[in-house]
C-alpha cells in the first residue's frame, strides 16, 4: 500500500523519489491545487472517499498514510 501511495505522489507531483517525511511545508509542489490533485488521485487509486475534515488533516505523508490505512481497513 505504501508503494502504491508513493506512486500516486510521484505521479501527481512529478517527482522521481518520495521521501517518507514529505509534507506541505517542505514540498513546493504540494500547494492547494497540488493538494486537490493529490486527494483526487488517491481517491481514484484506492476507490475511497475522504471527508473534508480528513482532507484538512492530510498535511504530510505520514498523516495521509494513516488516514488511508484507516479507510481501507474499515
Amino acid at each position: 500500500m505504501t508503494e502504491r501511495l508513493k506512486n500516486v505522489f510521484k505521479q501527481v507531483f512529478k517527482l522521481d523519489e518520495i521521501a517518507d517525511n514529505i509534507s506541505q511545508a517542505n514540498c513546493d509542489k504540494w500547494d492547494s491545487m497540488g493538494h486537490l490533485n493529490l486527494i483526487v488521485e488517491i481517491e481514484i487509486e484506492f476507490d475511497i472517499s475522504f471527508e473534508p475534515e480528513e482532507i484538512a488533516m492530510m498535511k504530510d505523508f505520514k498523516a495521509v498514510k494513516e488516514l488511508l490505512k484507516k479507510k481501507i481497513n474499515l
Partner: peptide
C-alpha cells in the same frame, strides 16, 4: 465535496 472545498462545480 469538491464544490464546497475547492469551488469546483465539475467533479475533478
Amino acid at each position: 465535496k469538491y464544490y464546497y472545498m475547492s469551488q469546483m462545480p465539475l467533479n475533478p
